[in-house]
Write a protein that binds this DNA or RNA. Structure first.
Lengths: 250, 250
DNA sequence: GAGTGGTCTAGACCACTCG
DNA sequence: GAGTGGTCTAGACCACTCC
C-alpha cells in the first residue's frame, strides 16, 4: 500500500494538505475490499507525504469521524469492516443500488415552483423557516430493475437554488447537483420514521396494494453551518426492499 | 457564559484537558435552551482555561463532529439549533420520552442465556461473528404512558458480558449498564428499516390489530474499535408514535 | 485594521502494545 | 525496548468577516 502514491501533496495549493492526504488514504483504503487491515503508521505517512505528523493525524482523524478507519493505542490504524446491506435512504440511491448489483432509475414525475412548505413538516421537524418563503417542489419515483421502491417529495428553499430548472435535476443526483451547481454541501440530516398503510395514490405509484405497510420518512437536511437546504418526505415500500441507515454515531 | 466556569481544568490528571474543556462547553451550551448563539472565541477560551489554542480547538472540533456546534470562518463558533421530535430508536428511550413530556417504562419479558444469533441477522447485517458463539437474549417491551410502542429483542455476545444476570438489566438503561459495568462504549450503529404488517404475537404485545403497519429495525452496534457489542431487532408501532434518527452525518 | 477561525510546523513527553 | 498512537505546547502565517 505504501508505494501506490508518490507524494503528490501540493503545498500552498488551494486544497489543504490534510485534505489531500485524507482523500488519498480514503480511496486507497476503499479500493482494497471489505476486510480490515492495518494502515501505515503516523510516522511512516508523515515521511511518505513529507508533511508533519500533526497534519497526518488531522487527516486520519477526519477518516475516523467518518467511520472509515479506527485507531488502537499502541497498535495502529485499521480499516473498519463493511457491514452494508440494503439501500440507504440518505445517501446516493444510484450508487447504492449499483453496489448491490441492481439497476437504479429515477424519474421526476412532478416539478413546481413557488410552493409553500406543507404544515406537516413544521409539526414533524421543527422547521425554522418562515412560512412565506418559496420552495421548489420535486417529486421523484425511484426504481430498482424497473420496480418502483420509493416516492420522494423534496422541498428546496428557492432562494438557495437560483435559476433552477426541472432539466437540471433530470440528469444527475440531487446532492451532486446541489454541490456542483450551487456549492451547497449537505452534511447532517434529521429524520422521522413512521409506519403507515399506503393510500391509493402511493399504492398506485409503488405498484402495491392499497393498505400495504410502507414507511414514511420526514426529514430535513442541513449544511455544516446548520442551514436547512432540503425538506423531504419519502415513502418506501417493503417486500424485499430495505432502507438502511449506516454508520450512525451514537 | 464566560464566567460560569472557573478554570477547573486539571493538568496532568487522568482526563485529558481537551476532554474536560469539551465537557464543560457541552453542558454550558446545552443548559441554554434551543436557540443558537455564539460561543467565546478560541483565544478567549484559551486564556480562560489556561490551555493552548490547539487544545481548545481539539475540544471544539470534538463538539463539532458531534453536531453540537459549528464554526464559521472569520465569525466564530455557534450552537446548532435543536430539531428534535419523536423518540429516537438509537438513543436512550427513557430520556427521550421524558424530554417530550411522557412517562416511559420498559419491561423485560424474556431473558435467556446460551442463545445463538438467529440466521436472519447474518443475512441482514453481515454479522461477522462465528455461528457457534453464545449470546444473551433480552426481550423488552417499551411503553409511553402505559401504552406499548416497541418490542426490542437484543442479542449480546456472552463473552463480552461476564456474570450478566437478568437483574442487572432490570433497572437502568442497557447502554448505561454496558459502559458502567463492562466498560463497553457503543459508538456506531448500522441499521435496516423494513415496513411490515404486524403478526399475531407482535400485535398482541403492542396492543394493535394483527396486520397493522409496523417498522422492523435490524441493527448492529459497534464500539470505536469496530467490535460488535449488540444485535437488535425492534418492532415499532405507528399511530402517533414516530421513530427518529437524529444528526445523521451524510 | 482588528478579530476570528483554518492550516501547518517542530518538538516534547506520555501511555500502550508486542516481542 | 522499540514502535505505536495520545496529548500538549508556542509560534507562525493565512483567509475570512465586519466595521
Amino acid at each position: 500500500m505504501s508505494d501506490t502514491w508518490k507524494k503528490p501533496i501540493r503545498k500552498s495549493g488551494a486544497v489543504p494538505m490534510y485534505i489531500q492526504v485524507a482523500e488519498i488514504l480514503d480511496t486507497a483504503v476503499k479500493s482494497r475490499g471489505d476486510a480490515t487491515y492495518a494502515l501505515p503508521s503516523e510516522g511512516e505517512l508523515s515521511r511518505e507525504f513529507g508533511v508533519s505528523r500533526v497534519t497526518v493525524r488531522q487527516a486520519l482523524k477526519q477518516l475516523e469521524t467518518r467511520g472509515v478507519i479506527y485507531s488502537e493505542h499502541g497498535r495502529g490504524y485499521f480499516k473498519t469492516a463493511s457491514r452494508m446491506r440494503g439501500v440507504s435512504g440518505f445517501h446516493s440511491f444510484t450508487s447504492e443500488v449499483r453496489r448491490l448489483g441492481g439497476t437504479p432509475s429515477s424519474a421526476i414525475i412532478d416539478y413546481r415552483d413557488g410552493e409553500k412548505l406543507p404544515a406537516r413538516f413544521q409539526g414533524h421537524l421543527e422547521a425554522s423557516s418562515d412560512n412565506s418563503a418559496d420552495f421548489i417542489f420535486l417529486r421523484r419515483v425511484r426504481s430498482i430493475d424497473g420496480n418502483p421502491v420509493a416516492i420522494e417529495d423534496a422541498y428546496l428553499p428557492a432562494r438557495l437554488y437560483p435559476s433552477a430548472t426541472r432539466a437540471i435535476f433530470e440528469g444527475s443526483s440531487l446532492y451532486d447537483e446541489m454541490t456542483s451547481t450551487w456549492g451547497i454541501v449537505p452534511t447532517w440530516t434529521d429524520a422521522l420514521f413512521e409506519p403507515v398503510a399506503a393510500n391509493a395514490e402511493e399504492a398506485a405509484l409503488l405498484q402495491i396494494a392499497e393498505g400495504s405497510p410502507v414507511i414514511t420518512v420526514w426529514r430535513v437536511t442541513v449544511t455544516d453551518t446548520d442551514q436547512a437546504v432540503e425538506y423531504v418526505r419519502s415513502v418506501y415500500k417493503g417486500d424485499g426492499f430495505m432502507l438502511n441507515v449506516n454508520r450512525y454515531r451514537l
